[in-house]
Simulated assay, not measured.
Amino acid sequence: MSDFSCRYDLSDAERIGGAIGAALIPGDVVLLSGDLGAGKTTLARAMLKARGLVGEAPSPTFAIVQPYTPPEVDLAIAHVDLYRIEDASELIELGLDEYLYDGALLIEWPERLGARGWLSALTLTISGSGDARVLTADVPRAWEARWPL
């Protein structure tokens, strides 16, 4: 696993999210961490746009899982927001693994996964705020050959 870090502001989200979104393949999991308002959803929206989504993706905060399937996008993607999950035992009902057969997962608030996780997940963490944001990526071996940044 290798690390990547860069200064980041919301104007960079389109470029960074687009590059990562274009590199997604079936079975990928992208974990998006950061405080409220850090820009996790903005980054996820840019990934979805890179896969062909037209218009703005709604935040999945209330739905928890917002699926996107062809022809809306060229790769099935589930955008997941675990903010409202209080106990990791609730995750079984979401059936997240099912999305990985032919698609990818974008998961906000992965801290709510508890001990559960995916070893090959790309972990993106946004820290700081405003112009002082830093994007850090833990790039797993499965991503090293196609890491776009």
Rank of each mutant, 00 (worst) to 15 (best):
A46C: 04
G39S: 14
I20E: 01
T69S: 14
M47I: 08
R84Q: 04
V65S: 14
T61L: 02
I16G: 06
A23N: 02
A23H: 06
G39I: 05
Y68T: 00
D74L: 06
D97S: 14
I20C: 00
E14G: 03
A78L: 12
T69K: 14
D81R: 10
L43G: 07
I25Q: 15
I20W: 09
E93K: 01
I85H: 12
L75D: 07
I77C: 08
Y68M: 02
A13D: 09
K40L: 08
L32T: 06
G17L: 07
G17E: 06
A38Y: 05
V29N: 04
E98M: 03
I85A: 11
L24Y: 07
T42H: 11
G27Y: 13
I85E: 05
R45F: 00
V54D: 07
P70Y: 03
Y68W: 02
L96Q: 05
T42R: 15
I64W: 07
P71S: 07
Q66L: 12
I20K: 04
S59H: 06
I92V: 12
S59P: 10
G27W: 13
P58F: 02
A50D: 09
L53Q: 10
G21V: 03
L91D: 00
G95Q: 05
G95R: 04
K49C: 05
G21T: 02
G27D: 12
G37A: 14
I64F: 06
I16E: 08
P58M: 03
I85K: 12
G21I: 03
R51P: 04
P60I: 11
D87A: 10
I16F: 15
A13P: 07
P26R: 12
A44G: 04
Y83N: 05
E93M: 10
D87M: 00
M47Y: 00
A19T: 00
L94C: 13
D9Y: 07
G21W: 02
Y68E: 02
V73G: 08
A63I: 13
E90A: 13
E86K: 14
L94P: 00
E86N: 15
E86P: 01
Y83R: 08
P60N: 11
L75M: 06
L53K: 13
D28V: 01
G95K: 05
A38K: 08
V29Y: 01
A57G: 09
G34M: 12
L10V: 09
V65K: 14
G37Y: 12
I85V: 15
L91R: 10
E98P: 03
G17C: 04
A63C: 10
A44T: 01
A57Q: 07
T41H: 09
L36R: 02
A57E: 03
A76H: 01
L82M: 11
E14N: 07
A88G: 00
V80L: 03
I85T: 09
